[in-house]
């Protein structure tokens, strides 16, 4: 059955409308979770607020479980679902740069747009920074092109690498996530910062 647009079960013209609806849900979820506040977001790195961990992993768990279930019931053809290609080295180095950016700036791109939408000027500043960063990347692209293209493994799934079924991998991720949730909530008590959590 699904995905509906790539199989032309519903017209291509609807795709942008769907994108807009998806975006509304995305933005709403982020803002409701408190992702429009940088002090709440970075809480995970100091232990006083682990909302990022909880929201990020519970969303990922629901996403992977749902996809697997849909595929089992033939509701979605996983061959038509985009799997991010793996370029190992650029993913690692890019991730490192993003990680520093995250804890310095207090946002990631989606959350900064969301923060800017409710009037956070630091969010707006972060968005401006992203524009500059992207521009710099494009200008320096010839210099980093070899890194950008290095370690291409194509549309590789982790279950293939580990040689286990997708269902079993998802189960392992669930176990890991539930342990992390537990640790996260313990950390919130251990590193509680009433002064910060009251304000944000």
């Amino acid at each position: 059955m699904g995905p509906l647009v790539p199989q032309e079960i519903i017209g291509e013209g609807w795709n942008f409308f769907i994108a807009f609806i998806v975006g509304i849900g995305f933005g709403f979820a982020l803002e409701q979770a408190g992702f429009s506040s940088s002090r709440k977001l970075v809480g995970i790195f100091y232990g006083y607020d682990t909302v990022v961990l909880k929201v990020f992993f519970s969303a990922a768990l629901v996403g992977m479980l749902g996809l697997l279930m849909f595929s089992l019931f033939d509701w979605i053809d996983l061959n038509l679902v985009w799997v991010n290609p793996t370029f190992l080295w650029s993913a690692i180095v890019g991730g490192v740069i993003m990680g520093v950016g995250f804890v310095v700036g207090g946002f990631c791109p989606g959350t900064s747009v969301c923060a800017a939408a409710i009037g956070k000027l630091d969010g707006l500043m972060f968005v401006g920074g992203i524009f500059i960063g992207i521009f710099i990347f494009a200008e320096s692209f010839p210099l980093v092109k070899s890194l950008y293209m290095a370690g291409n493994f194509g549309h590789l799934k982790l279950s293939t690498v580990l040689g286990i079924s997708q269902g079993f991998l998802v189960f392992l991720v669930i176990c890991a996530a539930l342990i992390m949730f537990w640790i996260g909530e313990a950390a919130e008590k251990r590193f509680a910062r009433e002064d910060i959590t009251r304000e944000v």
Partner: peptide
């Protein structure tokens, strides 16, 4: 809330892990 979320997810995950892939 954590348990409310964890328990159904864990059970669904366990079932899906045991079901052969489509």
């Amino acid at each position: 809330p954590r348990l409310l979320f964890s328990i159904p997810i864990f059970i669904t995950g366990l079932v899906l892990a045991l079901v052969p892939e489509n």
